[in-house]
Computed example of a mutant assay.
Amino acid sequence: MRRQKRDKLGRAYSNGYQAGLSGRTKENCPYQNTNAKSEWLGGWREALTDKNMGLFK
């Protein structure tokens, strides 16, 4: 059975989340595509919110 690849937008969100947790700025977004960039920034914002709530250090 073949493994299904994650969709590109889901990957962009995940990468943005990891960038937010590691303290990178939103200007470091590597995506040019509007949809992927939007997902990356959504993940980035979510990570900042989680950090501010004390879920991560």
Score class of each variant (00 low, 15 high):
residue 1 M to S: 08
residue 2 R to N: 07
residue 2 R to W: 05
residue 3 R to C: 06
residue 3 R to T: 10
residue 4 Q to A: 13
residue 5 K to D: 13
residue 5 K to T: 11
residue 5 K to R: 14
residue 6 R to L: 15
residue 6 R to A: 14
residue 7 D to P: 15
residue 7 D to W: 12
residue 8 K to N: 14
residue 8 K to D: 14
residue 10 G to R: 12
residue 10 G to A: 09
residue 10 G to I: 07
residue 10 G to V: 06
residue 11 R to E: 14
residue 11 R to M: 11
residue 11 R to L: 12
residue 11 R to G: 04
residue 12 A to C: 04
residue 12 A to V: 01
residue 14 S to H: 03
residue 14 S to V: 02
residue 15 N to L: 06
residue 16 G to A: 01
residue 16 G to E: 00
residue 16 G to I: 00
residue 16 G to F: 00
residue 17 Y to W: 01
residue 17 Y to M: 00
residue 17 Y to V: 00
residue 17 Y to D: 01
residue 19 A to T: 03
residue 20 G to P: 11
residue 21 L to H: 12
residue 21 L to A: 08
residue 21 L to D: 10
residue 21 L to M: 08
residue 21 L to R: 15
residue 22 S to G: 08
residue 22 S to Q: 15
residue 22 S to L: 15
residue 22 S to R: 15
residue 23 G to L: 07
residue 23 G to V: 08
residue 24 R to G: 05
residue 24 R to W: 09
residue 25 T to D: 11
residue 25 T to L: 08
residue 26 K to Y: 09
residue 26 K to E: 13
residue 27 E to W: 02
residue 28 N to D: 15
residue 28 N to G: 05
residue 28 N to Y: 03
residue 28 N to C: 10
residue 29 C to W: 00
residue 29 C to A: 02
residue 29 C to V: 00
residue 29 C to N: 04
residue 30 P to M: 03
residue 32 Q to C: 03
residue 32 Q to G: 05
residue 32 Q to L: 09
residue 33 N to M: 02
residue 33 N to F: 02
residue 33 N to V: 00
residue 34 T to A: 13
residue 34 T to K: 15
residue 34 T to E: 11
residue 34 T to W: 09
residue 35 N to P: 06
residue 35 N to R: 13
residue 35 N to M: 06
residue 36 A to E: 14
residue 36 A to H: 15
residue 36 A to G: 05
residue 36 A to W: 13
residue 37 K to Y: 02
residue 38 S to M: 11
residue 38 S to L: 14
residue 39 E to H: 13
residue 40 W to V: 01
residue 41 L to H: 08
residue 41 L to E: 08
residue 41 L to F: 05
residue 42 G to C: 06
residue 42 G to D: 04
residue 42 G to S: 11
residue 43 G to F: 01
residue 43 G to Y: 03
residue 45 R to K: 06
residue 46 E to W: 03
residue 46 E to Y: 07
residue 46 E to M: 10
residue 46 E to D: 15
residue 49 T to P: 01
residue 49 T to M: 07
residue 50 D to P: 02
residue 50 D to F: 04
residue 50 D to W: 01
residue 52 N to H: 08
residue 52 N to M: 07
residue 53 M to E: 15
residue 54 G to Q: 05
residue 55 L to A: 12
residue 56 F to W: 15
residue 56 F to I: 07
